[in-house]
Amino acid sequence: MNSENPKNEISRRRFLQNTTAAGIYLSMFGMPDLLANTVTDKNTAGIPDVKLNNGVKMPILGFGTYGLSGEVCQQSVADAITAGYRLIDTAKVYGNEEAVGRGIKQSGIDRKKLFVTSKLWVDDAGYENAKKGFEETLRKLQLDYLDLYLIHRPRGDVKGSWKAMEELYKAGKIKAIGISNFDQAQLTDLLSYAEVKPVVNQIETHAYFQQTNDYNLLKKHNIYTEAWAPFAEGRNGLFTNEVLTQIAKKYNKTTAQVALRWHFQRGIIAIPRSSQKAHIAENLIIFDFKLDDADMKAIAKLDLNTTQFPEWS
């Protein structure tokens, strides 16, 4: 979760408009029918799935919706699905579940082809409240089930919340359950009583905050790391970072594509967000190149080992 317009964010649109590759994307998407003509209702984007620890398959690249609302959110979700995204991520606290639901309906795609995630907010912590919160989320999304439901923050009665989610999972109302923003101690505590192991931990992960220790612990427990803010929302000049820029030039890609490819090669699920068709499409084009060992090591050295979102700490 992050800030929509942080003071130190460098505009990705402004930066990309000054690059050759971005010029191509932006000029192409000046033609309103291009997106529909280049992809079909099937997942032609070629997004690979990961197999979660309960056997459920989840796309490794999805579409985030934090900061999107109203008609912009609805249209962005519909555009993302048309472009080929199948994983759609939202949360109660985003205040946009209804708009996400409308976007899903607008896309016209078969619900079974989508992987929809939402999250239980702190106000709904506890056994009874969690069940009520979940039903409210389903109602707003106009769905009969969720593919993934997460405890958004480890606050309040986490044990009660998890018990409720386990029961909803066993009843088939949720295909998989997980957590978000849990640190190592909080994860260890949950695992001490959980009957159903979480499938993911959605945490801040990007080149400036690589969360190596958490990543390794999650991997040890066969729990996937899922990155929110995979671009750090442009903070600390990520889109103009010299290392990422040089790697991008090497492959004729953008810094955003390099950042997402880095996540992909680490086996991290990422959910970039945008309301721009050009960026929505651009973020999908990461499966036609591969970062070499030198690239991966160079990006590893960018780790500042500190959050870029202190307001959420």
Rank of each mutant, 00 (worst) to 15 (best):
Q186I: 02
F182W: 04
S161K: 01
K173M: 00
A176N: 05
Q184M: 15
S161Y: 03
Q202R: 07
N201I: 05
Q210C: 09
N216I: 13
A171C: 05
A176P: 02
A229S: 14
E167K: 00
D189T: 14
A207W: 12
K197L: 00
G178L: 05
S161R: 01
Y215Q: 13
L217W: 10
L190C: 01
F182T: 08
I179V: 11
V158K: 03
A185P: 07
N213C: 12
A171I: 04
L218M: 11
L217G: 12
E226Y: 10
D183Y: 09
Q186W: 08
K170G: 04
S161F: 04
L168E: 02
Y208Q: 09
I177N: 03
Y208E: 12
F209P: 11
Y224V: 01
A194E: 04
E204Q: 11
Q186V: 05
L191H: 08
A164P: 06
A171N: 10
L217E: 14
I223D: 01
T205F: 15
K175E: 10
Q186M: 12
K173I: 02
G178K: 09
D183V: 06
F182I: 07
T188C: 13
W162K: 06
E226F: 08
D183W: 08
A194G: 05
T205R: 13
G156S: 01
L187P: 05
A229F: 10
K175S: 12
A171G: 02
D189M: 14
Q211R: 13
L168Q: 03
V158W: 04
G160W: 02
M165K: 00
I174H: 02
A207Y: 14
A176M: 07
